[in-house]
Design a protein around this nucleic acid. Structure first.
Lengths: 221, 221
DNA sequence: GCGACTTTGTGCCTGCGTTCACAAAGTCGT
DNA sequence: ACGACTTTGTGAACGCAGGCACAAAGTCGC
């Protein structure tokens, strides 16, 4: 009953695992040794049936009539996500956002370590930020530590060539904050984070509600 | 043929509209007056059939045999997303990330305007950042401008009470950068942006590939 | 003016994700 | 030890999103 269908964790489930891990952290702080799917789902913002089905995809570690052992399930999910090791991260582009991410302590908490900072601005190269010396991409490629994950916080016009360089260095996971599409070879995964997009989606619903309100006033008045 | 099913734009489609808008901007820079679904889809990173189906949900503005008028389609999508007006935005929490967002010029480009900055740190309140005077939530609630969208960049422990205050002020759209779940009343929409989550998803796939590589070596060696 | 060609818009089908209903399995009180 | 109760794990149904095939509609050459 330990590992049923390990090779088939649905993408939607993977997307929720980090949330479960965070919720388990909250539960652990409260000191409760075990937790029911109902309660954990509440902390994670999903339905309990969804939580149980998600967990079933990575081998059931629950006890019927009791629930899940917080520490054990936490470790299991962390292992599944590959957080038992520290992934070396490089941040490319040290504008406001890049510097904010470099200073972000949440990285180090578990699973990730910023091992290099890159920028092409000659005024920045060689200076130290957050205890790391800023290098160029060339320097990183020739004499830098191995990196597994690249975070791109450059302007959009530079993002594609940065991505190409990272891929050439063997990076297969990219987190892209630049508002543009990156084209990469098969086997390289790109995730985009774009606040402009998020705001526009919010604006869509906001406008929708405004229109609904206007209509309500109209019919009422 | 102008407005068929306006009230039923699927959520997945809404999520792609900002990408189409950006792609249209690129096309406009090149000066081409019209563009085919095939080419536009390429710029946006989707299939052409998907693009056409998405656009069909907001009333067809294409010309068969020719394509879409770039300026007209751009205006149409902007209108659909509610970007013809400027939405007033407040940023709550002026740590590294909050300051980076406050300085981010991408906001102002279209549709959004940062009209207030909020922090509870007495050392910050009253000072000016990016031309705006930092206030407390109390000050904003009693004498601030109306805001439609709240951006939360506080630590996780403060996020919920900030959200409560924003909702009490009438904010119905929240963009949450804090790594926690927000509980809000019906009718309020929250979107979360969390780099830790994104990194963990990348780590999952990275580990998956590593395991696959190891297995390949093992069978090869 | 007409026919060949291009490109859009859409009905249908397939696959995935979510929810429901229920059986399996374990705990706790007596 | 046994029965009532709690909670998990999962098969089945349902709904949504994506892709294919094709008809509709317009342009361009002659």
């Amino acid at each position: 009953m330990a590992e049923p269908a390990r090779r088939g964790v649905p993408e939607a489930t993977v997307g929720r695992l980090p949330g479960y891990l965070r919720a388990l952290g909250q539960a652990a702080e409260r000191g409760t040794p075990s937790i029911s799917s109902e309660e954990l789902a509440g902390l994670a913002g999903v339905r309990s049936t969804q939580l149980r089905k998600d967990l079933s995809h990575l081998g059931s570690y629950g006890v019927r009539g009791v629930g899940y052992d917080v520490a054990q399930l936490s470790a299991q999910i962390a292992r599944e996500l590959g957080l038992t090791q520290d992934w070396p991260v490089v941040i490319v582009g040290l504008g406001n956002l890049g510097r904010a991410l470099a200073a972000y302590r949440g990285f180090a908490t578990r699973g990730f370590r910023v091992v290099a900072l890159v920028d092409e601005d000659p005024a920045l190269v060689g200076t130290a930020i957050e205890g790391l010396t800023v290098r160029t991409l060339d320097q990183l490629a020739s004499a830098g530590p191995r990196v597994a994950i690249g975070v791109i916080t450059t302007p959009a016009r530079s993002a594609q060539q940065v991505a190409d360089r990272l891929v050439a260095m063997g990076v297969r996971s990219i987190l892209n904050f630049a508002p543009c599409l990156l084209s990469v070879p098969d086997g390289v995964e790109v995730r985009r984070v774009d606040m402009a997009t998020e705001l526009q989606i919010l604006a869509f619903h906001e406008q929708r509600r405004s229109l609904a309100d206007d209509h309500a006033e109209e019919t009422a008045g």
